[in-house]
């Protein structure tokens, strides 16, 4: 299989080409959302809201940004992706299957006994998963270790770590943030899926994390805030992140929990609840109409 090309290797985009790329990615995002709601409904458990909120981030990374090869997941020069907010596993599984890491038929085995698609990412079981996550707050530390290892081996691969906003309440995230800046790890790019909700309610009500850009800046990071559902915005942020030297970059991606299905959008209830059969029908109607 052919590795996905880095966007630098492409010829400069014309407006027309950019539109085509974005249209294609939007269709991809919709297809991934359809897979997610189907998987979750079939599994009868899982996290709907936070899976739907990070779809554009994953699609942009796996189809436009990252150097990787679904035919050779151990490619030494690959960019690494860590899903620190492990409960969004359905979104990552849907992307990995679509990219060709495993058969799409596996998606409907999510969370079932004997599946390779565990409730949270398991690097021992799933092709394309770099490290095991699920217990929040641990992914960025593993990213730091990978980034240090890549530096020792003089590889120019990048490490992408996707965090939830509620997850930032974990102290370990800030230990990792401190160490990334201390070691000048400009090969790390963290992305915060800033959907504003956690299980018990609004992040600002449960445990306020603002002023978020100032916190990251204070820890020595380059900070970019973008619309987490806009491919052009995400793309330009990743491009800037790649050019920053001597410090890590965090992209605060403002997003909508449950994005793409009005019924689930910005609703706390759908953090950890799958669509019922009726809700699935409504969701698929909305998603397929926007996919046309």
């Amino acid at each position: 299989m052919k590795a996905v090309a880095l966007d630098e290797s492409r010829s400069p985009d014309t407006t027309q080409q950019t539109l085509t790329v974005d249209r294609r990615l939007e269709q991809k995002a919709t297809a991934i959302r359809i897979d997610i709601v189907k998987m979750l409904n079939f599994a009868r458990s899982g996290h709907t809201g936070g899976s739907l909120s990070c779809v554009e981030i994953l699609v942009e990374l796996f189809y436009e940004q990252m150097r990787h090869d679904p035919g050779n997941p151990a490619l030494p020069s690959r960019d690494r992706f860590i899903l620190s907010k492990g409960h969004a596993a359905p979104a990552l599984y849907a992307v990995l299957a679509d990219a060709g890491y495993f058969d799409k038929k596996e998606l409907l085995t999510l969370r079932k006994l004997g599946t390779v698609l565990q409730g949270h990412p398991d690097s021992k079981k799933t092709r394309g998963i770099e490290v095991s996550t699920g217990s929040l707050g641990q992914g960025l530390s593993m990213g730091v270790g990978m980034a240090l290892g890549l530096r020792i081996d003089r590889l120019d691969s990048r490490v992408y770590v996707l965090l939830g906003d509620g997850e930032l309440q974990e102290g370990q995230v800030w230990e990792a943030a401190m160490s990334s800046a201390h070691y000048g790890l400009d090969n790390i790019c963290a992305i915060v899926d800033r959907n504003g909700l956690q299980i018990d309610g609004a992040v600002e009500d449960i445990m306020n994390i603002e002023p978020l850009p100032d916190k990251w800046k204070g820890f020595g990071w380059n900070v970019i805030t973008v619309d987490g559902h806009s491919f052009p915005s995400l793309r330009s942020a990743f491009r800037v992140a790649r050019s920053v030297q001597g410090k890590p970059t965090v992209i605060i991606a403002k997003s909508l929990k449950g994005k793409g299905v009005s019924l689930f959008e910005n609703k706390v209830h759908y953090h950890g609840v799958p669509p019922t059969d009726e809700e699935l029908k409504i969701a698929l109607e909305e998603l397929t109409s926007c996919g046309r």
Partner: peptide, 19 residues
Amino acid sequence: GIAEQNLMGTAAGLAAAGK
């Protein structure tokens, strides 16, 4: 530094990178 949780996580990442 004095941050053992991050120390163990970083060790995990280094192992994942083949160290």
